[in-house]
Structure formats: C-alpha cells, structure tokens
C-alpha cells in the first residue's frame, strides 16, 4: 500500500495499535505516529485537551471563559468535539490537504470521523457545512468542510449559508478574529427551525467561525447545535 501522505510503500502490520486504533489505514506507521489524538479529559465546551496552561479550572478552558463574556455571543453555547491536536505534523498535513489541494488526504481520517459521527451525532437532523468565498473555492477547488461532511453522511448535508467576501481568517490575529464582523448569512428557507444541527469544520482555532455560525443557526431557530472540528488548535 502507498501512504496517503508520504507516498511511500508500506505494509499494514497487525499490531496492538491497529487493533485498538483502527481506521488509520491510509497512513504509514511513521506518519501515523506523528498524529496526537486528544485524550479523554477535555474542555467541556471546545474539546481542547486538559493542559494547565490553558485551564484555570478543570472543566472549561480560559478561551471559552473569554467567549462567555463576549457581548455578541452570550446566548451561544458551544459543544465541540475534535479528534486530533493541531500539532506541527497536523499543520503540514492540513497545508498539503487544503492549500496544496491533495483532497484525498482526508481519507486518512475516514474511519475516525465515521466513528465519532456514529457515536455522538447519530440523532442530528442536518450537517451544516461552512461556505467558502467564491475566490477561495476557485483557488482550492474543493470545500474542506464539505469533504468532511461527505464522509459523515452526505444525505444530511445542508448548504444554507453564504460567505461574504472577506480576508482569510488564518491571516488575522486572534483578537482581530474574535471581534471581526460575522461574515456569514443564511440563504434560502428557514429549514433549521427546531432542528438538531451539527456544524462541521477542519480546525477549531479561536472558535470564531463556530461561534459566528452557531449564532446564525440559533437565530434561525435550531433547537440543538453541536460542532465538530477534526483538529483542535
């Protein structure tokens, strides 16, 4: 088999890792070993792994405490799940996937994404994907959030949002992002009234995107909102 990431040939060995952590096929053991799964103990809101430097109390990280005090997002309650830490390898991986455009890299996580979806989000009515600006769509050739939603359940995927043309989030500083205006708007009918929705993205960094979209969906009458991001930065 050829490793999805490094393209080297490798043999699928049956080891304790492959038995207890299935769904890693697609990456060779060396690439796999560079991934850091998030362990059990996490922030109750954003899913960040417990680490003293980010936590004043055991339950909620300092970022989420700050969000609770944000004047625009008081009513928004976040419940995020992430699978991996956004470490250096993840950064390179995402860069190759999203910016270089190697779409199929996401298949390395198919099984893990499906597993999480089945165990946590079976009851959602809709999976909400995050739109890209026209320019970004052309540049990348695909939408990373839709790529993940497709692995979960394409039939439940709903594209009801539109993004105004703005600058890239990743080019902005943290404070700029948190206080930037909401670039998303609802399009079409209010199909999310009284629905359980799951917002899907690739990375949760400051949480800005998740808060902005959650707010719109909240105002559009969604009854339950949860979020999924493959990596937690």
């Amino acid at each position: 088999m050829i490793c999805l990431y490094c393209l080297k040939n490798y043999n699928m060995e049956v080891t304790w890792t492959t038995i207890f952590k299935p769904g890693r096929k697609g990456l060779c053991s060396e690439c796999c070993s560079n991934l850091e799964p998030i362990r059990e103990e996490t922030c109750e809101k954003c899913g960040r792994e417990y680490d003293e430097q980010w936590f004043d109390n055991k339950h909620i990280c300092t970022d989420c405490v700050a969000w609770e005090n944000h004047p625009n997002y008081k009513e928004v309650k976040i419940k995020n799940t992430s699978i991996y830490k956004y470490n250096n390898f993840a950064k390179e991986f995402v860069a190759k996937w999203k910016y270089r455009g190697d779409y199929e890299l996401i298949y390395a996580f198919s099984d893990e994404i499906k597993k999480t979806y089945k165990s946590k989000y079976k009851k959602v009515d809709y999976i909400i994907t995050i739109p890209l600006s026209t320019e970004r769509s052309y540049e990348r050739g695909f939408n990373q959030s839709e790529a993940i939603a497709k692995i979960m359940d394409q039939k439940k995927t709903l594209k009801v949002l539109k993004k105004n043309e703005t600058n890239k989030q990743s080019k902005k500083k943290k404070l700029e992002r948190i206080h930037s205006e909401n670039p998303f708007i609802m399009t079409g009918v209010k199909s999310t009234i009284d629905k359980k929705v799951l917002i899907v993205d690739d990375i949760y960094t400051t949480g800005t995107t998740m808060y902005q979209i959650s707010k719109i969906l909240y105002e559009a009458g969604a009854s339950e909102i949860s979020t999924f991001a493959l990596f937690r930065g």
């Binding site: 050829i2 190697d102 199929e104 052309y138 990348r140 050739g141 695909f142 939408n143």
Partner: peptide, 15 residues
C-alpha cells in the same frame, strides 16, 4: 496509486 480525484469546483466535474 499516485493520482487522486474529487469533484472540482473549478471545472465542476470529477477531476
């Protein structure tokens, strides 16, 4: 094995 494919938003086709 060293080619990938996906629905391409540039050409609106499988690419």
């Amino acid at each position: 094995n060293k080619f990938g494919k996906h629905f391409c938003l540039r050409c609106n086709n499988i690419c």
